[in-house]
């Protein structure tokens, strides 16, 4: 549907080794705006490794990463974030001791005056609270208390906060690593609604999940990894669900 525009993100022939483990063996992918790309594969297939290379946690050993057609070097998570890539990690990377608003802006605080070094600037707490409240409102996330520590919130609420944080700063690409793995039915639904919304707001979305229902429901395209190789790519619907599963399993 967006084939005419260049991909927001392109990975070409990426290799990643951890000592003797060859986790990615020449994987390529393209992600487009207004599109949810499902990244599928059995445990250990290399999904998390691939997205950690894209979000700057790991660096690829060989291959290329392009953003809007330009090759980039993502040396750190901060570099990826400033390139417009937001990640919702499998472990959420939330700060239990901080409030949702403080979590949203952690590492990217609104502060001033700007002539001081960042660390010595004064927090604009009211501004950040206001902005965070607006996002929570827009995404229709229900939180028990806006100024409570994240430690006191349920799995679904925490997941929603992590996704909402990504939406605050998402400009190009949002990556979600198994965002519903630990959630009940209703909480999962809420998170998937957020994913839908992210796409509708013009982001490219990469979604890792083991739930085929969610893939068929939500994803525009799916890529399957197995043992570090890309073994397939298709447009998921009810009719090819079986085919997807056998690609993931590697059995006919």
């Amino acid at each position: 549907m967006t084939a005419s525009l260049p991909p927001v993100l392109e990975v070409r022939a990426a290799h990643k080794r951890f000592g003797a483990v060859h986790a990615l063996k020449g994987v390529g992918l393209k992600a487009y705006r207004n599109e949810v790309l499902a990244l599928l594969g059995d445990n250990g297939a290399g999904k998390s490794t691939l997205i950690k290379c894209i979000s700057g946690v790991h660096e690829i050993d060989e291959g290329e990463i392009l953003i809007d057609g330009q090759p980039v070097a993502l040396h750190s998570p901060a570099a990826a974030r400033s390139a417009g890539i937001e990640t919702v990690y499998q472990d959420l990377a939330l700060f239990d001791n901080l409030t949702p608003a403080q979590n949203f802006f952690c590492g990217r605080e609104i502060a001033g005056p700007s002539w001081l070094p960042k660390g010595l600037q004064f927090l604009r707490t009211r501004q950040m609270d206001k902005d965070a409240a607006a996002v929570i409102e827009r995404l229709k996330v229900k939180l028990p208390k806006f100024d409570a520590q994240v430690a006191l919130m349920s799995g679904g609420q925490r997941q929603a906060i992590a996704v909402a944080r990504a939406t605050v700063f998402a400009r190009k690409l949002v990556i979600l690593d198994e965002p519903t793995a630990a959630l009940g039915l209703r909480e999962s639904r809420k998170v998937l609604d957020l994913v839908d919304q992210l796409r509708d707001e013009g982001n490219a979305v990469i979604l890792i999940t083991h739930n085929m229902e969610h893939v068929v429901d939500l994803a525009d395209r799916a890529i399957v990894l197995r043992q570090g190789h890309k073994v397939g790519e298709l447009r998921p619907d009810r009719s090819n669900q079986k085919e997807m599963v056998s690609m993931i399993m590697g059995a006919e």
Binding site: S76, A78, D91, F95, D96, L98, Q102, C106, G107
Partner: peptide, 17 residues
């Protein structure tokens, strides 16, 4: 704020830059 973030979740703090 960074002191609290580092104490709360050092790994996440690193990933948040």
């Amino acid at each position: 704020r960074w002191i609290y973030a580092v104490g709360g979740q050092p790994d996440a703090a690193r990933r948040m830059g």
